[in-house]
Design a binder for these strands. Sequence first.
DNA 1: AGATAACTTGAGGACTTCCTCAAGTTCGCA
DNA 2: TGCGAACTTGAGGAAGTCCTCAAGTTATCT
Lengths: 188, 188
Amino acid sequence: MSIEQRPLRRDARRNREALVTAAREIFGARGLDAPLEEIARRAGVAIGTLYNRFPTRDALIDAAFLPTLHASLARTEEALALDDPWEGFVRFLEASITLQVADRGFTEVCARTFDAASEIEKAKRAIGERMERLIAGAQESGGLRADFRLADLGMVFAATTGAPHWRRNLGLVLDGLRADAAHPLPAD
Amino acid sequence: MSIEQRPLRRDARRNREALVTAAREIFGARGLDAPLEEIARRAGVAIGTLYNRFPTRDALIDAAFLPTLHASLARTEEALALDDPWEGFVRFLEASITLQVADRGFTEVCARTFDAASEIEKAKRAIGERMERLIAGAQESGGLRADFRLADLGMVFAATTGAPHWRRNLGLVLDGLRADAAHPLPAD
DNA sequence: AGATAACTTGAGGACTTCCTCAAGTTCGCA
DNA sequence: TGCGAACTTGAGGAAGTCCTCAAGTTATCT
């Protein structure tokens, strides 16, 4: 299937950009369920224009958060490149959390599950794959407890994201993730 | 000030009861922002009756969750009576989390802050006071890390509540709360 | 400059939730 | 039994949000 993508007319491109910017701001402040009318207003554009460009809320979310997701991916690769794998793991967590506490929309993008075929989910899968490697590395080096799983990151983010004292909370959680702190976990 | 409280007429009392029951069910399933009309419908009562009995949403929340809060208080006292303070601390967490995962409304009651003069907040303060003692005891016995604070419980609940694997998550977090796992925390 | 496809506009219908209040019903006392 | 106070009812106005579409505007190409 050829997705013939004629370039947008100049004014349309400007409007599209304004909408994405506004969406990032509003979603960031009010969350992903913020009224679309507010985004249109902030972009200085009629609500119809928003719907012309982004037929669904998810399409707008995609456009608004893909860049952040890609930045996040880059951070993950940086962490992967560090000498000390445990250090890399911690750095990655700090970077992810920093992004999320500054942006409620991004937090929700990370927590919510979207259509599996969406760009967002594709990007999240790509990040997940690096995180797997990060975790495996930190475990082989003996820093991270062996029974830690990718899915446990959800708990780490739940514990830290959205709290003003996230560094403290992360400190507490990390002390439980060190290999030498590990006690056997319930069978799940 | 005398709050002359004439007993309700029999039918009114029945309706009140039905409303509180319905509220517990609906709030439990859908959260504290669930439509009040749905609660009235489930109670088999007109929306006007709900407003007659509970002029504000908070009044209904109060009536619906005070019993659970008192149950929670009882659990805290039980935990306080145990021989092993660390064991008591863990039991208390397990009991609280169990209550919360079964009831989304209760989770939100715990997380949200209400009017300081409300019954809910009074009960929460009472529980908080026992939790302080529980924490102090667990610290003196050398089980719980010395730098743990009451406010850190928020992180513990955030990490466990709402997850299907809460026991696993609690296990991970607890490993970070043991005195011998403690690394210095950021200055906050 | 003129034509036309591309784009924008915003009023408006549909829906949801809130809360009120005038009218109707029911309880329980005398 | 009958009366008055207590209680219930549910239609309906207000507000917010969604999404559409017919009419109007504008960019771009020749």
